[in-house]
Simulated assay, not measured.
Amino acid sequence: MKKIIIVSLFLLLMPTVVLAEDVQIAASIEGEELLVFVDDKQVNFPDQEPFIDENNRTMIPVRFPTEAFGAEVDWVQEEQKVVTKNQDREVKMWIDNNIMEVNGEEQEMDTTPIIKNDRTVVPTRFIAEALGVDVDYERVSYIAEDDSEIVSDNIGIVFNFTEDQLESEIEQLKEDIMTKVKDNLPEIEVPEDPADAHPALDDYNLDYEVDKKYIDELGHEDTTLHEPNELQGLSAYMFYDGWTEEGRQDAARILNRRLQDMDKVNEIMDYVENEGMPQTFERFETDSYTIRIASDLLYIYEK
């Protein structure tokens, strides 16, 4: 599962950033993506991307974001030391050393700066907080499509604030960035033909999100999807109008996401069309699922 981490440093605009309206997200399924923002601006990294280290810390090349918010960065080769300064703080870090100094006082980190691809890479939270930046974090899950298969991804959003702002202003900034990021995320293409429905992900919550997208984009006005219940093995639960072609298509898409067997789906929907009655359930069995269906309700239980 790929994770995209977004680090947002609420700071001053410098030449290494681009407008958030032009937010760039590499939507490939391979690897791990990290996005860094300064205020509502995205920082570009020309030769070494941020990453998550073995201690689960977000690591960034120190020069680009620190220079972007007006701090000076110096490298002392003989000491393998990086020094960052702003108006009232001086931060010293050493390669492969978990001790840093802030205005001469030692502080311990739970990871260490390193050299990677000839860049000095430091832990985001420690350098940001040492320079007086407040840090906040959000995570967003989303779904994407890769070779007609659905995969799930996460975006971790780390917000860092340096300016005195009202709480409402901070929340609005966060919301604006998250909205712009979401607007640039890849989307799945919902197929009209139930035979082309994406296979289930074996994750109740993510499958529910996919099902919702199916209903939101193609669903009949009377179709209502309800949340699954993993404890009961209830994979899908929906109200639909089985007396309309559109309603039966909604049910067929949700069914075939689980069954991946259109012969069985057609058997079930033929029953609904020709014999189904409201609140009168018929039971169908497959190797993996039990289906209870009436002309207005569908329950899909995982065995």
Rank of each mutant, 00 (worst) to 15 (best):
residue 140 V to H: 01
residue 99 I to K: 08
residue 119 R to Y: 06
residue 88 D to V: 10
residue 95 I to H: 06
residue 98 N to D: 11
residue 112 T to C: 11
residue 129 E to L: 05
residue 91 V to Q: 13
residue 96 D to P: 08
residue 86 N to D: 12
residue 84 T to F: 12
residue 93 M to I: 11
residue 151 V to H: 05
residue 118 D to P: 00
residue 149 E to P: 04
residue 91 V to E: 15
residue 134 D to F: 13
residue 135 V to F: 07
residue 100 M to C: 09
residue 111 T to N: 04
residue 136 D to G: 14
residue 121 V to A: 07
residue 103 N to D: 15
residue 121 V to L: 07
residue 145 E to V: 02
residue 123 P to Q: 01
residue 149 E to L: 10
residue 88 D to S: 15
residue 104 G to Q: 15
residue 90 E to C: 10
residue 146 D to I: 03
residue 130 A to K: 05
residue 124 T to K: 01
residue 96 D to C: 09
residue 83 V to C: 10
residue 90 E to H: 04
residue 123 P to A: 01
residue 138 E to R: 07
residue 105 E to A: 12
residue 111 T to G: 01
residue 88 D to T: 08
residue 150 I to G: 04
residue 149 E to F: 12
residue 130 A to Q: 06
residue 91 V to P: 10
residue 127 I to E: 00
residue 114 I to A: 04
residue 122 V to S: 01
residue 135 V to A: 08
residue 120 T to W: 07
residue 149 E to W: 13
residue 132 G to A: 03
residue 111 T to W: 01
residue 120 T to H: 06
residue 128 A to T: 07
residue 147 D to F: 03
residue 97 N to Y: 06
residue 122 V to N: 01
residue 123 P to W: 01
residue 141 S to A: 04
residue 116 K to E: 09
residue 107 Q to I: 11
residue 128 A to S: 09
residue 99 I to M: 08
residue 112 T to D: 10
residue 115 I to N: 08
residue 118 D to Y: 03
residue 121 V to S: 04
residue 84 T to S: 11
residue 126 F to P: 00
residue 110 D to C: 09
residue 125 R to D: 01
residue 140 V to Q: 02
residue 91 V to C: 14
residue 135 V to M: 11
residue 127 I to H: 00
residue 136 D to S: 12
residue 151 V to T: 08
residue 86 N to M: 03
residue 135 V to I: 10
residue 141 S to Q: 03
residue 102 V to L: 12
residue 97 N to A: 05
residue 112 T to L: 15
residue 119 R to G: 07
residue 102 V to I: 14
residue 104 G to F: 15
residue 143 I to N: 02
residue 137 Y to I: 13
residue 82 V to M: 13
residue 117 N to D: 15
residue 89 R to G: 11
residue 127 I to G: 00
residue 125 R to T: 04
residue 112 T to I: 14
residue 124 T to A: 10
residue 146 D to Y: 13
residue 104 G to Y: 14
residue 114 I to S: 05
residue 113 P to W: 04
residue 119 R to I: 09
residue 83 V to E: 15
residue 81 K to T: 13
residue 83 V to W: 11
residue 134 D to K: 15
residue 114 I to Y: 03
residue 134 D to G: 08
residue 93 M to R: 12
residue 128 A to E: 01
residue 101 E to P: 06
residue 87 Q to Y: 15
residue 96 D to L: 12
residue 138 E to T: 09
